[in-house]
Nucleic acid binder design. Structure first.
Lengths: 334, 334
DNA sequence: GCGGTTGATTTGAACGTTCAAACCCGTGGG
DNA sequence: CCCACGGGTTTGAACGTTCAAATCAACCGC
């Protein structure tokens, strides 16, 4: 547990010189730098982050509230966390996890973490439409960045990164079109979250553009479960709409579609093509594999960190990324 | 951003008295305490954690390496993280996430975090048999606790918390027995991880105890996928072994079993009973719901934190917890 | 009335770092 | 020869807290 002082003594320079060797090496003469570095190496010195933070009042920690939606199958959270963590580390920072009540009730927790100087700022996810956290944090002048747009076009407080769900759906539709499908249905949710609206709008627009029908082809599932996905698929098939492609709002719903097709002796991909959303671990674990729209987690995380640690000059940064279609057996050429 | 000094001035006491008001209130006269607390309240004072940590050299942060394995073990990681986070907070601490290469290559990262005083200790999970990290950390005198035993009985370096897989399997077997099943199979993995061995041993022992057959009823799947679970189930059924119960090493394998049964027109739960492991989000999202052995995440997290933040008096703490059977449709009385 | 004890509060220093300013010294111009 | 200049280095203070020791006040017994 060597300190700056000990290194300085060992290298026969002042404390500040050692500090400079680490933070501003260009200020040292080459031979001094060399000597100091040798001492650092020899004594196995590591700067004490607390002392540094006390002086500079920057902790290089980013707060992230670990969501607690017991039912909501957030199957890609581990991917997200890993990406976020890696991106933070690339900028010399780390992620501090915490829990907080949802919505505005959680704000005191955020405030506290910031006031005690335990974090420099926050990454918000699990954002809800009109999420109250954004405005609150902005008012307090606490740095943050949101994963997910939650307000209508350009009225959202603060910077954000999001994935373009509309384009994602369009990509899925075009993929199914190119593999020969002409009657493409959409499995969505009832409650119109911004996310769902975005994605269904993309499906509709793409179908229109390609001259494909949409009426009667959008189904709203009651909940995000395999069962509901299967039931919705059954309804579609029974209605005699000649569906030959399905875009689902989630992998779980898509899995339901796959199950229903299999149950009816239809091999997914050999007739009806199915595309899910998020490329969750499930997509790769079923057979045939589920074609799915992957969120570019690494890019997302990179942008979140870049924005949060950026100049912070008041200009709200906004970044819309494109999902990537991961093609598997469920959408093999029909 | 009030400081101790400002609060002290406002309450007309010394800095140390304010510090005591927070850390050792019993030392103050009641009226002084009252007055100081009012000032604290009024100025909205929050102690600066960095200054505190610098002085006490304890950061109240616990390091956790976010795993990067692209497989299904992670389906319950968000549950674990949330529980860990909550438990840490109950003890006034927080979780710091980081990434590191697996095995011994990651040790410099652990060492660094500790040497820079960014964490007080570590919680290890995703432990492998003979995980090199344990010995290394112990040698360095870095505090840690392991989720998962990785060495043979009582030779494991350092404290651990684990879930009793053997008893878990036994619970599953007894449950299937009580619901009328008499020929209970086990779906496992090939590579004998400690975890798998533990669970399969419990199945074998429980069957023996109940006078049930085991020979030819243990199947090893090539990988942890729905497909492999289904194939293994098919093999079992085709071998004409009259299987009427299945305990699977993971929910994913169990899902495969469910799929194969459904495919053959057998409704799971109405004939053959199926039990999975870990009570992942999947278990609740299929129909019929999958009976599964739930790891008591809250207890696990509680114990991990308690051990890590405990006296650390050299006596390696060990804590074996029991899984809990969550009964759903897949094991309805046959 | 004096030393001893206890309880409440203050004082001075320390934790390990960085910042701002000062210092030293060789160089080159006037 | 003096002065301004600038790169390289040192000095002193500060960040906000807690620790250890000192002080102060009141109370007790003899």
């Amino acid at each position: 547990m060597a300190t700056l002082k000990q290194v300085a003594a060992h290298a026969d320079v002042s404390v500040q010189t050692v500090s400079n060797a680490l933070n501003a090496p260009h200020r040292l003469r080459a031979d001094t730098l060399e000597r100091v570095n040798r001492s650092i190496e020899l004594l196995n010195y590591r700067p004490n982050r607390n002392a540094r933070s006390l002086r500079t009042s920057a902790v290089e920690l980013i707060g992230y509230c670990v969501p607690n939606w017991p039912n909501q199958t957030h199957l890609v959270m581990d991917q997200f966390l890993h990406a976020l963590c890696a991106a933070a580390e690339r900028s010399g920072r780390h992620i501090l996890l915490f829990t907080a009540p949802p919505g505005v009730d959680g704000m005191p927790t955020y405030d506290d973490l910031h006031a005690r100087r335990m974090v420099d700022g926050f990454v918000l996810s699990q954002t809800e439409t009109h999420d109250p956290r954004h405005g609150w944090l902005k008012d307090q002048g606490i740095p943050f960045v949101s994963f997910g747009r939650v307000w209508k076009q350009s009225t959202q407080p603060g910077p954000w990164v999001d994935v373009d769900g509309a384009t994602g759906s369009a990509i899925a539709v075009r993929h199914l079109y190119e593999t020969g499908r002409r009657r493409i249905a959409f499995l969505g949710w009832p409650k119109s979250s911004g996310l769902a609206e975005d994605r269904v709008a993309g499906w509709r627009a793409a179908c229109k553009e390609l001259g494909l029908p949409t009426s009667g082809l959008a189904v709203r599932c009651r909940e995000d479960s395999i069962d509901e996905g299967a039931r919705a698929t059954a309804r579609l098939l029974d209605a005699g709409r000649d569906v030959d492609g399905i875009v689902a709002l989630s992998d779980v719903l898509a899995l339901g579609a796959l199950r229903e097709l299999t149950r009816r002796g239809i091999t997914p991909g050999r007739g009806i093509g199915v595309v899910g959303y998020d490329d969750s671990p499930l997509a790769d674990v079923v057979s045939p594999g589920l074609t799915s729209l992957r969120q570019p987690m690494d890019r997302i995380a990179e942008e979140l960190i870049a924005i949060l640690t950026g100049p912070g000059d008041g200009t709200p940064a906004e970044c819309l990324l494109q999902p990537e279609l991961v093609i598997r057996g469920s959408s093999a050429p029909g």
